[in-house]
């Protein structure tokens, strides 16, 4: 084969593979666009202010999704209230106190493994421990505790990243002035890490809001057109509501528009939370770069 022919062949082979890679990338983007298109088109017809703020009526074939939205917000906030202090504490230990060694390796291995445990196993665990053994029953608090444990690995990782981003010179400066370790952490390190930690917390919130499997077992109610007043009550939740409307309802065809609307509200909620988290992260990153 001549040199020119060889080069041409090489170029064709390259062209083929690059085209294949590009095609898959296009499929990826296309799939995402399709998912959004489908949900938005389906949901836009039903979504309105009254859809969001009304109780479900006539066996969920009419009315809105208010209790499901409120239930999701309640359980997500409760989840974050439990997991963020624990996660920040763990991150402070790992990033500020711990010396590299066997214990830290074991902790990191555990965190990675926890993040790989299927959500339904967390649900089963929560059902057995919080609902049955602790006697909370299927309730808001049992579901929140379960979700809190589930999002803990992410909260820890997020908080640790936030702590890592605090310049070492703050710690050195504090200690060199004779501050104790805890004084340095509380007064110099944590204030700078808070935006990053908030980002991690909101991402955890979004994850808790979108999760269904654990709350099926630990507290979500099929139909409960009231707002929960107590953490030991059951609650409705958007993702579970969507599941019910899509598969469990006796008239799935009739409630399909409501299911679309629920899906759209859920997606908007999750994307809104993620956008806020990313906005906070970028805002403070830019602010730090300017300094």
């Amino acid at each position: 084969m001549t040199n020119a022919a060889l080069i041409k062949k090489k170029r064709n082979v390259q062209l083929m593979w690059v085209t294949i890679c590009a095609t898959f990338a296009v499929i990826t983007v296309g799939t995402l666009a399709f998912l959004f298109y489908w949900i938005i088109v389906g949901g836009a017809e039903v979504i309105s202010w009254s859809f969001i703020t009304q109780m479900p009526e006539q066996n969920m074939t009419a009315g809105g999704i208010w209790p499901a939205l409120v239930g999701t917000i309640y359980v997500s906030l409760l989840t974050i209230a439990i997991s963020v202090p624990l996660g920040i504490g763990a991150a402070i230990y790992l990033n500020e106190y711990a010396k590299q060694g066997r214990l830290v390796r074991l902790i990191r291995l555990s965190i990675r493994n926890l993040s790989g445990v299927p959500s339904i196993v967390y649900g089963l665990f929560g059902l057995g421990l919080f609902a049955a053994t602790f006697g909370f029953g299927r309730s808001l608090i049992a579901a929140a505790l379960t979700l809190a444990i589930m999002v803990l690995p992410w909260v820890i990782t997020g908080a640790e990243e936030a702590l890592k981003a605090v310049p070492r010179s703050f710690r050195e400066g504090g200690l060199a002035l004779g501050a104790t370790k805890w004084q340095t952490i509380r007064q110099l390190v944590l204030p700078s890490a808070i935006p990053g930690m908030a980002t991690g917390a909101i991402l955890g919130l979004a994850r808790a809001a979108g999760e269904t499997a654990p709350i099926i077992l630990t507290g979500a109610a099929y139909f409960l057109p009231i707002i929960p007043h107590d953490i030991k009550e059951q609650f409705m939740a958007l993702p579970y509501h969507l599941y019910i409307l899509a598969t469990q309802h006796s008239e799935t065809a009739t409630v399909r528009p409501i299911a679309y609307g629920t899906a759209l509200v859920l997606i908007i909620l999750v994307i809104l939370l993620n956008s806020v988290a990313i906005f906070i992260r970028n805002y403070y990153r830019r602010k730090n770069e300017l300094l």
Binding site: I107, F125, I156, K181
Partner: peptide, 24 residues
Amino acid sequence: LMEKLFLVLGTLAIFILLLIVGFL
């Protein structure tokens, strides 16, 4: 006390993992 508190929180992940296994 703070150091011990953080030690406990730091090792929480290990305990939770063990708790899940033990409980299942």
